Amino acid sequence: GVSLDDIRRRLHATDADGKLLVGADVAIAVWLRTPGEGWLAALFGNRAVLPLTRYAYDRFADLLYAWNRRKGRW
């Protein structure tokens, strides 16, 4: 149920339980599973910082998507 533009705009993945992860949550999940990167997940994925992490990721994703559209990549 995700459009092609949605996929191009933000990272999408499913976890081991089949739950859909989107955006910053994908990055945090990858950091949790990457040796030596768990500290990034702890820093950016904690309850106090997570809303800011998601907001910052979404704004960066919007800029990157717009840049790719201007360059004719989508």
Score class of each variant (00 low, 15 high):
Val2Arg: 14
Ser3Ala: 05
Leu4Ser: 13
Leu4Arg: 15
Arg8Glu: 12
Leu11His: 14
Leu11Phe: 14
His12Cys: 01
His12Trp: 07
Ala13Cys: 03
Thr14Lys: 14
Asp15Ala: 08
Asp15Phe: 08
Asp15Lys: 10
Ala16Thr: 10
Gly18Ser: 09
Gly18Pro: 07
Leu20Met: 12
Leu20Asn: 08
Val22Ser: 12
Val22Asn: 07
Gly23Pro: 01
Gly23Tyr: 00
Gly23Ala: 03
Ala27Thr: 04
Ala27Gln: 07
Ile28Ser: 08
Ile28Thr: 07
Val30Phe: 11
Trp31Asn: 05
Trp31Cys: 01
Trp31Met: 01
Arg33Tyr: 00
Pro35Ala: 09
Pro35Lys: 11
Pro35Arg: 12
Gly36Leu: 06
Glu37Cys: 08
Glu37Val: 00
Glu37His: 12
Gly38Val: 02
Gly38Arg: 15
Trp39Glu: 09
Ala41Val: 04
Ala42Met: 06
Leu43Val: 02
Leu43Tyr: 12
Phe44Lys: 10
Phe44Glu: 05
Phe44Met: 09
Asn46Pro: 03
Asn46His: 10
Ala48Val: 11
Val49Leu: 09
Val49Ile: 15
Val49Trp: 03
Leu50Asn: 05
Leu50Lys: 14
Leu50Ser: 04
Leu52Pro: 00
Leu52Val: 07
Leu52Ser: 08
Thr53Leu: 02
Ala56Trp: 09
Asp58Tyr: 01
Arg59Trp: 08
Phe60Gln: 13
Phe60Ala: 14
Phe60Gly: 03
Ala61Asp: 10
Ala61Asn: 08
Ala61Glu: 08
Ala61His: 10
Ala61Val: 03
Leu63Phe: 14
Leu64Met: 13
Trp67Asp: 14
Trp67Tyr: 14
Arg69Ile: 08
Arg70Gln: 09
Lys71His: 12
Lys71Trp: 09
Arg73Gly: 00
